[in-house]
Design a protein around this nucleic acid. Structure first.
Lengths: 336, 336
DNA sequence: TTGCTTCATGTTAGCGCTAACATTGAGCAA
DNA sequence: TTGCTCAATGTTAGCGCTAACATGAAGCAA
């Protein structure tokens, strides 16, 4: 604790004040200070005022780490997303955080980066902080991750999908049906050569299966499937690798917009409605951006923030329905 | 702990196993188990194997809450952003999290929602979890927030700007100069009637000042400034409120793209280069999307993830330069 | 007065872990 | 043998707080 090691700042010298220092200064026992912080109604007004004065004088900031250990309640929730730099997951985190923060819960955020090993590491790291619940996008990729969560004996919410055997609670939508809906629409529009572009993560893959199954059921030939690397702006060049294709379902809006950009360069994009597009494009996610570009993007609309808020609710209420399907909506604009 | 209160799962019954239960099972003292977890090299191989076996058998997950209290190290970093549902901040969080997670640090995420009161609440909430550093976008909006941070005696990193009197460390760029650079460019392009659209948050306002000052210094009349609500897709309609304007600096790419969408509807957008645009548009942020739309978006490029990674480095290294200017770059494409 | 209730505050023990300081015994030089 | 070092493990105390259970004083009905 020598002064060259203390961080910048001009506050009170020495270590952070503790409950009992506040108590001593206010002339009460520490439990009374604790009550002023947590249940002020139980403390007589004059005593409370004295304690609050002492807290202010010392610049007391409660230590929730100690409080959590003593009370076995951390008031925190672990959140695991593939990446936060993806608007749809960021919306979900915002939604759940908006719901949880006013209740005094903190969000501990971890990213798996679509890597199963890292996911397990992050799950273990989250659990070792004893969150009162875990909310994750998707489901654990490994048996080990699944085991960890089951053994944790806290509410677990899997989101963005409707797994067949959830660990506990679920807030999502049916990715398979989304694929079916898109294929149905494209078939009805008279499209013949369908293709799917996107990642090969579990949710994208379910969209693909729904899309393919419906296309086949409608008598079309098997759609092409182009797996793009994440971060790959390869979606821009994708059309070159899909000769003859007249309709594309992109696993997310970012890919859809990238693909449209490629189409434009190739002279295959019109400013009119879907009916005049040489190649129809449907995205998923309903980014605001989709309405701002031209032609406007048709898409499967999914409410990422509603998923987050619903997930938060599921961590708080243990009773009631534990499997919430928030559905999706096919929003038709000009791209397909 | 009656069984109706235990959460779902089929793991080992009862409460989570503790260090000493592992110790008992392995026939060692608890400190040896602690060493196996934290400094395995200090433990004899056979002992270690026995302890690891016991940990696996019991499904032991270390309790970092207790560890943090005992060691006075939480291995966590508090992160405060206005909102996570904004690509530029999400990039920053991703960058810092990618840097911090491999080192065993957890990210505790909080959002201020551009609300000073909520910001102070969130800062207090973060500090009560005793993070080893705080990284925030911008600077505290209130004296109280500033005081809290100064008294915390931990590294504090303010990002996305270069405040004149930082609390501790800084990783950002000069928003004023960014505004100057845009105005300079538009003047050089022969534009006469400039306007600025965006929010009135501190960083946006600094961009505005730079933009205005440079326009005036170049002999132009004072630019219009249109303050848009956040989430306001009002940027789409903004051009209607800016008659006669021939160049617009949007405080971020999302606004820029929205504005361009409005221009398109009004027939004021061309597919050619900047020289043929009736109204030049410059954004800020360099979203990937900007390159995918047509015309492609000219913008001030800022590396949000680099800001995050730099901020993370600043929390870890206490020595060295504490004020890092990551600069920006004017990227000229077709919109202006 | 007794006996009860209620409010305000205090005492005690312990949450699960780690820092700091023992302790033990083996290896080995002189 | 002595005396030392070093590797491996243990003992003790305590981090800052809260749950659970006192305690004591005041109010009040009968």
């Amino acid at each position: 604790m020598s002064s060259e090691l203390t961080a910048p700042g001009t506050g009170p010298a020495g270590a952070a004040p503790t409950l009992s220092e506040v108590a001593k200064r206010a002339g009460v026992s520490s439990i009374t200070v604790s009550r002023v912080v947590r249940m002020p109604d139980l403390v007589a007004p004059e005593t409370r005022a004295r304690v609050e004065r002492a807290m202010r004088d010392l610049g007391y900031v409660p230590n929730l780490v100690a409080g959590a250990l003593a009370s076995a309640r951390t008031n925190s929730v672990g959140v695991l997303v593939p990446t936060i730099a993806n608007a749809i997951f960021a919306d979900t985190v915002q939604g759940l955080s908006d719901k949880l923060e006013p209740l005094g819960f903190s969000v501990i955020l971890a990213q798996s980066r679509y890597d199963a090993t890292r996911e397990d590491r992050m799950l273990a790291a989250l659990l070792s902080r004893r969150p009162e619940a875990i909310i994750m996008v998707g489901s654990p990729a490994t048996e080990e991750g699944s085991r960890l969560l089951r053994n944790a004996r806290i509410p677990i919410v899997e989101t963005w999908d409707l797994p067949a055997n959830p660990i506990d609670a679920v807030a999502g939508f049916d990715n398979y049906k989304a694929g079916v809906a898109v294929a149905k629409h494209l078939v009805a529009q008279g499209r013949k050569q369908l293709a799917f572009i996107g990642g090969d993560d579990p949710r994208g893959t379910r969209r693909w299966f729904g899309f393919r199954d419906e296309a086949l059921a409608s008598g079309l030939s098997e759609p092409r499937r182009l797996i793009l690397d994440r971060k790959d702006s390869g979606s821009v060049a994708a059309h070159a690798r899909l000769p003859g294709v007249d309709a594309v379902f992109a696993a997310n809006d970012a890919h859809a917009i990238g693909f449209m950009s490629g189409l434009r360069k190739a002279g295959l994009l019109r400013d009119g409605p879907a009916s005049v597009q040489p190649v129809a494009v449907i995205g998923l996610g309903d980014l605001e951006m989709g309405q701002l570009i031209s032609p406007t993007l048709s898409t499967i609309s999914v409410h990422g923030d509603a998923i987050g808020r619903t997930a938060a609710t599921l961590t708080l209420e243990r009773g009631g329905e534990r499997r919430i399907d928030l559905g999706f909506e096919l929003v038709l604009r000009d791209s397909g």
